[in-house]
Amino acid sequence: MINYQHRSRGFTLVELVIVIVLLALTGLFVFNYLGFGAQIFRDTTERDQLVSQSRFALNRLTSELRNAVPRSVRVSVADSQRCIEFMPILASSQYVRIPRPGPPSVSNVPFTAIAPTTLDGLVGGYLLVYATTTQHIYGNATQRRKEVTGVTPPVDNLVDISYSPNTFFVTDSPVRRYYIGGMPISWCYDETSRGLYRFEGYGRLNNQPSFADLQLSTATSAELMAENIYNDLNNSEFPFKVFEATLYRNSLIQFDWRFRRDAAQEPLEILHEVYIPNVP
């Protein structure tokens, strides 16, 4: 009779320790590999978001500035150039006749103009004729700026514009151009929250309102347009600069925005220029 003996075999303690160590090293490698990939994805997503929001704010402000009344753009050096203000164009065309200083046949004529593209929303706007400085546009004097009180329906593509105060215009435009501007708009950089805000509804003011003034105004609506801006105003990193128009150059507005992600020291500096035609 044949007797078979079966021997039970297992793993030694050394073999178990080796296997555990190898599994730990493999798991650590796989975890680090997956974590590295997730970090790359996270960084790429955050960079895309930073670029997208900066592009949105840049395109929006550029579009609004290109529709601004010439010579209406201003920044305040006293407020570290953190805010830019301008008056948007509601309508623009050419006039046929305007009241001017002189005899009644000249000073008592109505303001007759070629009808603009739209007549909606013009009442309450500012009628401007050859306003060549910010004081003409925002100041207390009304020789070149009036407030629109009514517009007649077009007849043969001509309209009469009534305004207040009902006085003559002190000068003509060389190209007989007029603008109707809306309520001013401001874009401001908040160094505390690192945000870029858009303000409107505060009305026309002789002196440009500061960022603090706009924050305290109850009639002002504020919108956050961009985040993660790290301009150092104490180091002359001013977000807005305005170069006035000359006989040989249009008005030039320059943006200098320093974006950065919260989790990384990766600056994204945007330098952008916008030209506004010098045709008051």
Rank of each mutant, 00 (worst) to 15 (best):
V123H: 08
I276K: 11
N140G: 12
D262T: 13
T133K: 03
S93E: 04
E200A: 13
D213G: 03
V175G: 06
P165Y: 07
P153E: 02
S107V: 06
R97T: 15
Y4R: 10
G124P: 00
T12D: 01
L216C: 02
W187Y: 15
V109N: 07
S107A: 08
L122M: 07
A226M: 02
L247V: 06
Q81H: 09
N228T: 03
R260W: 05
T12Q: 03
S217E: 06
R66E: 01
D156A: 12
E237S: 06
P88D: 02
P277S: 14
Y202W: 07
V109E: 08
Y178Q: 03
S92E: 10
G121K: 11
Y202A: 02
A263E: 12
V106G: 02
L128H: 01
F111W: 13
Q254I: 13
Q265F: 13
E273I: 10
I270R: 05
K241H: 09
A115Q: 09
A78N: 05
S92H: 09
Y202L: 04
L224T: 01
R7K: 11
A24Y: 02
R7C: 11
I137C: 10
G102K: 05
I253Q: 06
Y202Q: 03
V17G: 06
D190N: 14
V170C: 09
L252M: 12
G203H: 03
V279M: 14
N140V: 11
H272K: 01
R66G: 00
L16S: 10
T26L: 15
E147K: 15
T118G: 05
F240G: 02
S63H: 11
F199D: 00
A113T: 07
R198D: 00
T112W: 06
R7Q: 12
D48A: 11
P280N: 15
I40N: 12
M225V: 13
Y275Q: 15
L13H: 05
F56C: 00
I276A: 07
L13P: 04
